[in-house]
Design a protein around this nucleic acid. Sequence first.
DNA 1: AAAATTTGACCGCA
DNA 2: TGCGGTCAAATTTT
Length: 275
Amino acid sequence: MDTLYPWPEPETLSSNKKRVIQKLVEGQQCATELQVIVLHNNKPPQQAEELVQKILWSFNQTLSMLAEAGHHDEVISQNQATCNDDCKSQDSSESSKRSLSAFVKDKRGCYKRKRFAQTKIVVSDKIEDGHAWRKYGQKNILHSKHPRSYFRCSLKHDQGCSAIKQVQRMEDDAQMYHITYIGTHTCRDQYSSMATPRIDSPSPILKLESEEQATTPSNVTDLDSMTMWTDVMMGGVGFETDVVSNMYSCTEITCLDLEPVELENGLLFDDTDFA
DNA sequence: AAAATTTGACCGCA
DNA sequence: TGCGGTCAAATTTT
């Protein structure tokens, strides 16, 4: 079948993709700066606010889609490699039992690690951030007093949002949380409930804090809600523009570090979640 | 009953 | 091989 614009060779495609992503990130950064200007205006026209949000949302979505598409082939080849390995080890009863259960019985353990995802590390005395999170695991970490809790976006199944976060109490200050945001929010849950899932629930201290937060949800100031929205925007690829984080997030959250953005590689999304 | 959390099993990576 | 991350059945909460 003839196409008016045939696809370029893979090498060209790859290099073009890099440039496309770079340009998109540039656009995203400009939009972010524009957002800061608009929000700093005492009385920004609502239309302008909405427009900026739309633009940023659009950039975030596009970059996320590109990132996911970029990993698709890799994911497939990894799966094939895993399958081959399992098939080779049929003489081991344990291995064959595992591979059988993996392919026939259930999908437990059939997942792909997220690699090259954007990460943002923050330290805060609160774990809520305006997003609704669902806890999916907890682990005791070697040489750590406190367990690490794993959360994914509640809208993962509804909207395929791939954002996850890890929460762990600080070693030296148990009132503070070390929160690692991994991946980007592709959902539109910025106005969702201030759901505060419990972490390391056996701790009575934490439970008290959760209850306290649950009973005082009304202390959300304009700045807080702005922080919420900013955080959604910052979930986008290439949020190393410190402008936004410095201006808003640090009202409650201390930004410790922003890891370098890996343009070529975004999220490796677990496709089993769509099954 | 549905949604959320807990928890032990399992997997990938260093 | 051990550790950390994820899955999903079981359990708890709403």
